[in-house]
Design a protein around this nucleic acid. Structure first.
Lengths: 209, 209
DNA sequence: GCAAATTTTGACCGATTGGACAAACGTTAG
DNA sequence: CTAACGTTTGTCCAATCGGTCAAAATTTGC
């Protein structure tokens, strides 16, 4: 579809990175329609026409941002591997997803914003690439269940649950911090969350008999 | 704070309801800044100036909507009761939250939008009313743990996990449906989710020894 | 050092936005 | 019937939006 990547000068590469970084900040906080080119330009320390020299339309920025995001976002799931102990694999997947919520909350919110609005710009990817990947990993998980390595349950909803619980700490961060309060809502909240999630996914809530 | 409710004519009551219903539709799909008064007016079947006769500012609509939402939204948690079997109480709380995600997805998305944007309009409620309620219920859950009725873990993060997993089916609905595909993504997905979540929260993933 | 290419800027444009306002219309009580 | 009140509409406005354009400033290749 797309021709070879356009050759770019040093300045173009640098400025484009600067703009994308600023746009990530603005888009993730206000959504696409809630963000203005002026805001992004100011955050990037340049004038609006100057920004438009590097990205001709507001949508181009968002699209570029989204494309980059998706690769890094799906990487942890891609790494979920058939070899290795199933329980360990799942645990490290959960841990990695939680680390991403901690280290890349803006990316998580950008993605959440897009999905919330009905995913108008990435629908084909959801139905194509993402579905394929999830189906593939669901098959792997099903294999583990058949082998008696983990309890039998629905692999798709299991993946949803891991996404939901981990991304919650990025997308609903303000609520999490507000509820936990200044003491428990500090930096340690991610370690508390990690401990809790590990227990939840492994043992559930039933008291040890 | 607020004086007695202003007396309203029959027409005012009806039209205000009509506007709020339309606004819920529009706001939940596009966010606050992404929605226009014209869109809401059209969805409500009236002209923009006419709408502004009932709500003088766009923010007033959103505020009214948010106030109503919060009551119904927190109702299930309020019902979590100390009397009754702990495991049953938690299970029915999860089921009720999932039903709300199924029956009131627009309300869930409206709330999610607000939190995603940093909760500028409901921050005091999060730190006040919500935190108080959650702390109170966390204490109840802690009591159950001390009594050996459920496994010992962090009650706050347990509540977060229930919120995250259930609301996921409303907020990320398009993604869920896209990944499940046309077959498994039909109406039955909520029953599948209910079964899965029940197993997850009760037994976790460890295979039965 | 200089010409060509690239980058930056200020001024500007049409479209859309939230909202104001007065006039017109409808309803209702006496 | 009619005066008072409640409702609806068309028109208008200032601000903001995404985006253009030509000219100025700067960088780059030779």
């Amino acid at each position: 579809m797309e021709g070879s990547a356009p050759r770019r000068t040093r300045i173009q590469q640098e400025k484009r990175e600067l703009i994308l970084e600023a746009a990530l900040e603005v888009f993730s906080a206000n959504g696409f329609r809630g963000s203005t080119i002026d805001q992004i330009a100011e955050a990037a320390g340049m004038s609006k026409p100057n920004l438009l020299y590097y990205f001709r339309r507001k949508e181009d920025i968002h699209e570029t941002l989204m494309q980059r995001l998706l690769d890094t976002w799906l990487a942890p799931l891609k790494e979920l591997d058939d070899i290795g102990d199933p329980m360990t694999e799942l645990r490290s997947y959960i841990r990695r997803k939680l680390e991403m919520a901690r280290d890349f909350p803006r990316e998580s919110r950008l993605f959440a914003n897009e999905i919330l609005q009905g995913a108008p710009r990435i629908m084909p990817m959801l139905e194509g690439e993402l579905k394929t990947l999830v189906d593939e990993k669901a098959a792997v998980i099903k294999g583990w269940m058949r082998a008696g390595k983990i309890a039998r349950t629905d692999p798709w909803h299991l993946i949803f649950a891991i996404w939901a619980t981990t991304q919650h700490y990025a997308d609903f961060d303000v609520q999490v911090r507000a509820v936990l309060g200044p003491d428990r809502g500090g930096d340690g909240r991610f370690e508390d969350a990690a401990r809790f999630l590990e227990q939840l996914f492994l043992d559930g809530l039933k008291p040890k008999a």
